[in-house]
Amino acid sequence: MEDQKVIVDKLSSKSKDARRKASNGIFHGLVILFSLITITPIILIILNLVEKGYRQINLHFFTQIAPDSWDAMQAISQGKLIPGGILNGITGTFMMVGMASIIAIPLGIMIGIFLYENGNKRYANFIRDITDILQGAPSIVLGLIAYLWVVKYITHGFSALAGAVSLAIMMLPLIIRPTEETFKMIPNTIKEAGVALGVPYHKIILKVMMPTGLSGLMTGILLALSRVIGETAPLMLTALGSQYVSFDITKPASAIPLLIWNFYNDPNLVNLIWSSSLSLVAMVLALNLISKRIASKRK
């Protein structure tokens, strides 16, 4: 009886306890240090973008198309700001993301509702697995697919439509999952109230369930938009890029990330990468912020 106590006391000397406390303190310090290292890049990235990009940002930057290399070179040699802006990128991004939304949002919501309706059935789980696979698919692969389907067989050349298709495939799983989750959170009584009134099924979905879960759906949609709006790789294989504002979906189109890529590859235009990146990041973060606001209001 007593000897066990002695063993515990002997094996756990004060100096050992002190060592344990010290290593605990070191560990705590390391966690703080590494956490600070973790957030350093995002602070640096945003600071660097603002520092190098803010000078180019003015109204013209959003209302004029990208300059050509020659004009930029002359402006640089005269010590002036590079003329022009990213209008063709903005219109291209809006057109392609808009088309992708038209394809992906209704389809994604319908599949999400289908999953909600069919709970844990085997077929529904199969659909969930496919959704997961699509969500994990690298964006460059989606670009390849859209190239092989649209560029080769439909528009017979690089086109905004092809870009939109690659973005739509990317958006689809990002819409499906939040839709299902949102519908699951709606209390069954709300649905039953509609059924009890003899409301037709599609109207229950459209007029009762969707408005109730609207904020959840919006959160999912905005997050999906914020993800595809910055995509470059799939558009390089599909939309290619364009120097002009064009609304012809069968023709190549630009997008903000594509413009950044072009600027980066042109020594005369390279100074424009910072202001265009700043604008792009601001758009993405704004979408993120709005969706988080909506999500937190819901709770």
């Binding site: 995002i42 602070i43 973008l49 910055g230 995509e231 790789a233 950044i260 990468i273 990146s277 990041v281």
Partner: peptide, 21 residues
């Protein structure tokens, strides 16, 4: 909350901007 928000922001930066940086 601060650290969490910063980590979330990392997910919002487009790949091409990471490349430039």
């Amino acid at each position: 909350k601060i650290i969490g928000t910063m980590v979330d922001l990392l997910a919002g930066i487009p790949s091409i901007v990471y490349g430039l940086w």
